[in-house]
Simulated scan of single mutants.
Amino acid sequence: MKLDHPLIAERAVARHCQELLGSGPGIAELVPALSLIGERLTRALAAGLARLSGGRAPVVSIGMPMDTTLGAIQAELDTLAMHSLLALGPDGHPALATFAAAPVFRLVDRAFGGKGEVPDPLPDAFPLSAELLLGRIEATLAEALGTALGGAQPLRVVPCRRETSLRQLDPFAMNADLLQLAIEVEEEGAAPWSLTIAFPIATLAAVATVPRHRARGPRRDGPADPAAEPYASLPLSVSAVVIDMRLDFARVAALSAGDVIPVAIARAVPLRVGGRTVATGTVGEVEDRVAIQIGHAF
């Protein structure tokens, strides 16, 4: 394995030594831990990108962690991409950030006053302008990830090396178990762009705080407290039903571009979790974004 960063090089032997690592937490324990890290990363990255561009903070969203391998990541990439090796913490635990070519060229075009157009066909290599922009985004991502992992005392995250070839970068074994976060960034007036971060299980076990279950105490009667663990950290999909209308089949079948359908927005917009209404509120606006003010919670 080729490792240029001294922190990673010093750790290379210990990372593969089970006697030193111990059993550690498994994927089932690391998935919720990484979900919490992802939530903190959305806030830190949005603030960092706002400082980078000097504008309004973008909307950053992160999907649920997905298990994968380096081989699977390589198989999914059919065009040019840039891969960045990150060293996490004082021991330099590796992580991998991947930037697909199309979003990078879109950002470069916008940086030079364009509309965010992507060259067709894509070139075989990134120009210097793209390399420079990637370096700035990479540094912003490293800082945000350090904040997400360390909280009040950010973890040191260092960008080590970038390559367009995963085989040349050789960040970790091709069949190593990884957990991957997909990140999407939406900026006003521009198409969204995305990147991914992949963490080996050994890296997450070393840098993530995994909640441990407390020993069982006396049984308590009454309902569980939703604000207490393990329930408080569970992610829930919340939907706001702004419009709920009925159209007959003939009307739907006849719809075409340019048709206007009059709709009425209810005064009390229901918020639903799992198909069940948990609250109602009114539609408004906060900082140029649509918002709902809760009027009644069940």
Score class of each variant (00 low, 15 high):
V118G: 01
P119S: 04
D120V: 12
P121S: 05
P121H: 03
P121T: 06
L122N: 02
P127K: 11
E131R: 08
L132G: 00
L133D: 03
E138Y: 03
A139H: 13
T140P: 06
L141F: 13
E143F: 05
A144W: 04
G146K: 03
A148D: 01
A148I: 04
A152E: 11
Q153C: 00
R156F: 02
V157Q: 09
P159K: 06
R162E: 01
R162D: 04
T164E: 09
S165W: 03
L169K: 04
P171W: 02
M174D: 13
M174F: 12
L178S: 10
A182D: 15
E184P: 02
E187G: 15
E188M: 12
G189F: 04
A191V: 15
A191G: 09
W193C: 10
W193R: 11
L195S: 06
I197E: 13
I197Q: 10
P200G: 02
I201Q: 12
A202W: 03
T203N: 06
L204N: 02
L204V: 02
A205N: 00
A205E: 00
A205L: 00
A205C: 00
A206E: 02
V207C: 00
A208F: 00
T209R: 10
R214W: 02
G217H: 08
R219Q: 13
R220K: 14
G222P: 08
P223G: 09
P223F: 01
A224G: 05
A224E: 13
D225H: 04
A227N: 06
A228H: 10
E229R: 13
P230V: 13
P230Y: 04
S233A: 13
L234C: 08
L236C: 07
S237M: 11
V241S: 13
V241I: 14
V242G: 13
